[in-house]
Design a binder for these strands. Sequence first.
DNA 1: AAAAAAC
Length: 470
Amino acid sequence: MADLASRITKPDEEPAPAAPAAETKLDGDEEVGSALVDATYDVEIKLSDLQNEEGNPLYSVKSFEELGLPKSINDGLLAMNFKKPSKVQETALPLMLANPPRNMIAQSQSGTGKTAAFVLTCLTRVDLNQKTTPQALLLAPSRELARQIQGVILSIGQFCGDLTVVAAIPGAVARDTKVEGSIVVGTPGTVIDLIKRNQFDTKNLKVLVIDEADNMLDMQGLGDQCLRVKQKIPRTTQILLFSATFPDKVMSFAEKYAPSANQMRLKHNDLTVKGISQMYMDCPDQDKKYDILCKLYGLMTIGSSVIFVRTRESADEIKRRMESDGHKVSVLHGAYEGVNRDTLLDDFRSGRSKVLITTNVLARGIDVSTVSMVINYDIPMKGPGEREPDAETYLHRIGRTGRFGRVGVSISFVYDKRSYQALTYISNYYGIDLVQLSPDDWDETERKVQDVLKSSRAKPDYAPNAIKVD
DNA sequence: AAAAAAC
């Protein structure tokens, strides 16, 4: 890795002017293949941190080869059909792999390859011959996401020999047994529990990754636990924070958590994914929402669908009603425990179940390529008394579809002034127009949805196929 | 008037 800087500086280019001290915008390059890669985003990067010893800028790499990764890792990328780095990969990877290691705060739209970016960094930094010494720790906000990341590590690392990746989640790891693996990926509660019991030796950690970092560092939620983990790791550990959303509120804390980090940020208006057609359904009243949901069932099963509701109880209730009305659906939320949850999600991944009702537990990170429709049965709200529209959760929820350049539809249900105003706030926040659907004109609703779903789009060549777990 | 995450 020592020569990384020279390797990614294109020798045939004019020497660039000295990097300005302040933040500078870089426009995304034109690429071909899909709307996703065609899109030009304003990416804000702190250029002051982006120069090598000769003062040349380290903008990006245009191929994985330029990173000079070990052959075993390159073979893993090829096997997973990663041929060309996505924007976040070409920009963040050279920064994360450079020596001496620097912290990183990286923001990128849903389904654009953040996971592969930090997994590559972990695999590169870890001595995989030390199979019982944890050297990289990755934290995620849900059991499902932790398992998924474990699957990505094992896939990209499939040619790295016997890769030992421990999932530190309830039921998958014994609380009174030593954690023995090169890489640990887990949820904060279990990880802290293991550290407390002296079953997780953190002193050799080279990398700490916090996925969904804005959620994880929220002091109303998991922030405290992440802080405690940080206190237990070496000062020299490289800290990498990733998310599609970084609201200002948590950004200052993120900068303290990952001091003097290189940063890759996006503006609100560049956060939405072009392949996702965002629609809303004008429901006459709360009671009619359920009937309309049932009428949408046929459209939901064109591919797979996720229905997001506010509470566990309503998730169970809707499942019960839909089943009694003859629809096949499954449900997953935090009241379910351990391995049961794994089975439920595996069934959804494999297509054995096609319509999944869930809470915010699955709003973030979950990558199931077949998901073509997301329904916001309840508009996500946050804050005391749930009075404030939750624009971040909205974006993460709809990001369960339209992944890696695929098309998808989201339908948000509004039924009263409050839900309508909340959705209006969210569409203004991202600077987008939503397509209106009317429950009175069913032919038109079907046409609008099917028009999107049948429009095929070339998959970008960096897209992984379905992520395999186990 | 939430969800998640540890026992």
